[in-house]
Write a protein that binds this DNA or RNA. Sequence first.
DNA 1: ATGGTAGCGCTGCTA
Length: 257
Amino acid sequence: MRIATWNVNSLKVRLPRVEEWLAYAQPDILCMQETKLADGAFPALAFAALGYDAAHCGQGQWNGVAILSRVGLDDVVAGFTDGSEDETTEARLLWATCGGVRVGSVYVPNGRMVGSEFYEAKLAWLERLRQHLVTGCDPSGSLVVCGDFNVAPDDRDVWDPTKLHGGTHVSPAEREAVAAMREWGLVDVFRQRYSEDRLYSWWDYRAGDFHQGRGLRIDLILATRVLADRLSWALIDRFARKGKLPSDHAPLLADFE
DNA sequence: ATGGTAGCGCTGCTA
């Protein structure tokens, strides 16, 4: 089973690239983030034509997460279900069961500046996600959390730790929030397979960062141990960051036997 | 050289 995740940065603009990528990458499941679409504008028919069922949680303009699957799509849940009022006001979380795997597509808040209210909200959001796992999920089951975490788990995942020190994505509190999910039972499957640095999934559009190798690895597939033990391959598809109208993120894919 | 681009949507915000 091939599971992939891709922050597409506007599905309206990126649909041709996503269709092209589905045709050659052939994922069984694709989690998308930053669709920037209302649910009514989600191009479900375009994906159905390629053999994928789809679920979408959107708000228009900002955010928006989706799951495509060609191995079944059931028990769809949008947003948190912990009883708070803002469950889907920001469309950042979507769950579905696909081919026996509980799949989460997540778009973690950016945080903007360390210490800002947005940064505090980011930490709270990550803790809320962990609480969802603790209260509603089984670490011995088959589950993946895929998406743009807006956190680079360690210094190997950033192009220059010195320059980025003090900013978001690399702060100890953010990294501890991701580590807490590993402690619950999730494995960063890309890092399980590759220990090298400079393997990034996002590059700023500005200043030629992609071509200069200035990126971050912030898109993750976190899998429970029973799945991670069956990992056969993983890849960040940097080719998809090239060419006409690319997203600023590359897709990440992982194969499970 | 302390810059720069992209998307949304129409002025400035978000990333």
